[in-house]
Amino acid sequence: MLMRHLRSPRHPASLALLALATAICMGAGPELPATGLAAQEQAAESKLPGLSVEEARAAANRILKAVQSRDANLRYSQFSPELKAASSPSMVAATIRTQPKLLSWNLLSIQRGLRTTTVEASLTTSAGKQDVFLVLNGAGQISGYHIDLTDQAPSLVARKFVAALSSGHFISARGFLSLELQKEISVASLQSRWQQLQRQTGDFVRIKRAVEKGSSSDQHLVLVFTEFNRLTDSLFVILDNNNQIIGVDFPSDPITPQPVR
């Protein structure tokens, strides 16, 4: 089976460390006046476009309150235009039914960028604790997210990713990708690649199994064997040690269906 070249895996620093290294701590007491280098850093930060720290905090709280309310219409209204184009209130409602209830949350850090702002939050849900990174655009709308799944098996994460793709929940599927990879793969691009695959393989039927085929000190390769109505083929998923998907590829030349013997 011929395969397109897999996207070169990255070895990013831990998102948590990255966030902590550049974040502005939330919930701290009154700040002391900055001097010297600290004053210069604050002045440079204030010139960044997009959301301020207070705006990002307020937007993240609005989004998490909507998640807690389980109001599909409200959650959909907070999507960026790109996410809205790939979803609908009914799809959001279907996703909500599969998720645990959000009980409370604590905003941990904010990382401001040139185009987006990333907010790290610790969630307490009916299924336990969960860390999440929310990516906000300049209007305070959610344009992406990533859930920390470090404690799960790589094969399970890869299986959940393909399950989200196969059900048409491309926003949820993209949430399994690392934030770095999300910068390169939009929701629309992910949807297009899945639809192109099905034009060759036929409609999705089921995931047969997900098997970890190799690992190194910082990467895991998982093959997700997937049955379509014309053939069965495998999808390649590469994850880092935090179970963030850093590479994914679909077969460009799926196996030709064989005649019955």
Rank of each mutant, 00 (worst) to 15 (best):
M1I: 00
P12Y: 03
L15A: 04
L15W: 00
T22V: 02
P33R: 15
G36E: 11
A44T: 01
A44G: 06
K47C: 03
L48M: 05
L51M: 03
V53H: 08
A59S: 07
A60G: 13
A60T: 04
N61P: 01
L64R: 04
A66H: 12
Q68I: 03
A72E: 05
S77W: 11
F79P: 06
P81L: 00
A85S: 15
S90P: 15
Q111V: 14
L114Q: 14
T117N: 01
V119F: 02
A121I: 07
A121D: 07
L123Q: 06
T124H: 12
G128L: 00
D131E: 14
L136I: 00
G140C: 14
G140V: 09
Q152G: 04
P154Y: 06
S155T: 01
V162E: 02
A163Y: 10
A164W: 04
H169N: 11
H169L: 14
H169T: 13
I171N: 09
I171V: 13
R174S: 00
R174H: 02
L177A: 08
L181A: 10
K183C: 14
K183F: 06
A188H: 11
L190P: 01
Q191F: 15
S192F: 12
W194I: 12
Q196Y: 09
G202W: 13
D203K: 15
D203E: 11
I207L: 04
R209H: 14
A210Q: 12
S215K: 14
S216M: 03
S217L: 11
L223Y: 12
L223K: 09
F228C: 05
L231Y: 09
D233K: 08
I238E: 06
D240F: 03
F250P: 02
I255V: 11
I255S: 09
T256W: 00
